[in-house]
């Protein structure tokens, strides 16, 4: 089979997988942000117990491979009677994992905001939570955008791991195609090109967006 023929015959399936990949990425990046904010606020502003829990959780997730986390969710949970579909396990795993990393990026953003902002908020009578919600968070979330876009692209690539536990994203489709026409190398090459293209486009979109939003301050966070 020539490369051209392979491209034509595989593309529909691959694109199906791509849709799932993109969906997983967007979902995980988004939910990951929510989780990240919660974890981060717990770590920075919580009492000792909350802080310890958050730090412990963050370090645990960041210190272990994502694949292991996926395995625990997909193969481990059934022991307790929780049976997740591969897609669900993958989504939960990515959300939690991304949440932990994003918590750290947001923390960096918060730390880059001077302590004076908090003091000023207090000086007009705000409570700690008012100050965090109205003054610190809006600024931190703006500063974390570069790191967030990095995280998005990271997720785009690492969703490929989900195929190992059987989620129907692009890698899984590639394997399926290849195992039928035995053109392993060329199929994977094609897949590589698709990833390249998607990552490149995403990066372009984000850098345009960033330029539009014009955030002063430093870049926080790189996996």
């Amino acid at each position: 089979m020539s490369f051209g023929q392979i491209v034509l015959s595989s593309m529909p399936r691959l694109l199906n997988g791509l849709v799932v990949t993109i969906y997983m990425t967007i979902f995980s990046a988004g939910v990951g942000m929510l989780i990240g904010v919660l974890l981060c606020l717990g770590r920075v502003y919580g009492n000792r117990l909350v802080r310890a829990l958050c730090v412990g959780f963050i370090e645990l997730i960041r210190g272990t491979p994502m694949l292991v986390q996926l395995f625990i969710l997909y193969y481990g949970l059934p022991v307790y009677g929780i049976r997740l579909t591969p897609l669900m396990a993958a989504l939960i795993g990515f959300c939690i994992n991304s949440g932990a990393y994003q918590a750290e990026y947001i923390r960096g953003a918060i730390q880059s905001i001077g302590s004076g902002q908090m003091k000023a908020a207090y000086s007009i009578g705000m409570t700690k939570w008012q100050a965090v919600r109205l003054i610190i968070l809006p600024q931190a979330l703006r500063r974390v955008i570069p790191a967030w876009t990095n995280e998005f692209i990271y997720l785009l690539k690492y969703t490929s791991m989900a195929y190992i536990i059987g989620a129907p994203e692009m890698m899984a489709q590639a394997k399926f195609i290849a195992s039928r026409n035995f053109e392993f190398f060329r199929v994977y090459l094609l897949t590589a090109f698709v990833y390249l293209a998607v990552v490149w486009i995403a990066a372009e979109i984000f850098s345009r967006l960033e330029r539009r939003l014009r955030i002063p301050g430093t870049v926080i966070g790189e996996r």
């Binding site: 690539k157 490929s160 791991m161 195929y163 890698m171 590639a174 994977y188 590589a192 990552v199 490149w200």
Partner: peptide
């Protein structure tokens, strides 16, 4: 930096 590690591994192994 743009292609997933898995894809790279496959490419090498099958390529």
């Amino acid at each position: 930096r743009s292609i997933p590690l898995l894809v790279l591994l496959m490419l090498i192994f099958y390529g």
